[in-house]
């Protein structure tokens, strides 16, 4: 049961599908400025359950080299948050899966958080992730705004998050809980899911109100399947971005990537 009355494509998805959800992250404006829509459509066609679009930032401190690199390329391509909002206008004519945006809080502050929430809601975007927005500040300043605009807010938990704080995150989140798999930045090849069973079990047993997706260092069928044992699904970012960087035929390669993750 969700603690809020938010009802959007994200909450509808979790109400109907409980297992094996695949959420793919990609960076807006990467590899080419105008690839955002192409990639979004290709991911839907390939059968992913939802997508998370990254807003590039000059200083993404939670991200490893692969996503940093895609941010730099996208910014050099001329992407801005205003441009992303333009690129997403009208997507609901053809995109029917949940779409959320992930970005660092500074770009949203410069755009104006209220204006951004309203613009995204008008497009039909379902939620946001700001990894560096404090939960307290969200509650104090933005929660009503998000709820009034039917936008979900997703917070992260990590292996070091205390039991008390897990509860707090669950109370405040309104889409799903982003379960960070290991103490890690994104796409850290030195880290994997081995040794995380105890943590994942703890999360599973916590019986959150919100659904859970495990992300960070999920990169293939094996890690996706492992994550799905403990959560409603998994999030893949860096591995997908790496593939995009080497791709010459986006639609075909995206289809193959998704099928490789789902079926192995």
């Amino acid at each position: 049961m969700m603690s809020t009355n938010i009802d959007n494509k994200l909450t509808q998805l979790f109400a109907t599908k409980k297992e094996g959800l695949l959420n793919i992250y990609f960076t807006a404006g990467y590899p080419q400025l105008e690839d955002t829509r192409t990639i979004l459509k290709a991911l839907q066609d390939a059968g992913v359950d939802m997508v998370e679009i990254g807003i590039p930032f000059s200083d993404p401190i939670a991200d490893g080299p692969i996503i940093q690199g895609s941010n730099d390329v996208a910014l050099n391509n001329g992407i801005t948050l205003k441009k992303i909002v333009q690129q997403l206008q009208g997507i609901r004519d053809e995109i029917h899966i949940p779409v959320i945006l992930m970005g660092y809080i500074n770009t949203a502050l410069q755009y104006g958080v209220e204006e951004l929430v309203k613009d995204l809601s008008a497009i039909g975007i379902d939620g946001m992730i700001f990894p560096d927005l404090p939960i307290d500040e969200y509650k104090e300043k933005y929660q009503k705004l998000f709820e009034a605009n039917n936008l979900s807010m997703v917070f992260l938990v990590t292996p070091q998050t205390s039991a008390e704080r897990l509860k707090y995150v669950d109370e405040t989140s309104s889409g799903f809980i982003y379960v960070v798999s290991t103490a890690s930045t994104t796409g850290n090849e030195a880290k994997d899911l081995d040794g995380q069973k105890e943590y994942f079990e703890r999360i599973k047993k916590a019986k959150f109100n919100n659904p859970t997706l495990i992300g960070f260092n999920i990169k293939d069928h094996a890690s996706y399947s492992e994550a799905c044992k403990y959560a409603n699904g998994a999030i893949i970012g860096s591995a997908f971005i790496k593939m995009l960087g080497n791709s010459h035929l986006l639609e075909k390669d995206i289809k193959e990537f998704v099928s490789f993750v789902k079926q192995g």
Partner: peptide, 11 residues
Amino acid sequence: GGAYIPEMLVP
């Protein structure tokens, strides 16, 4: 001021 940090740094 404040502490605008990813959850990984919160503890």
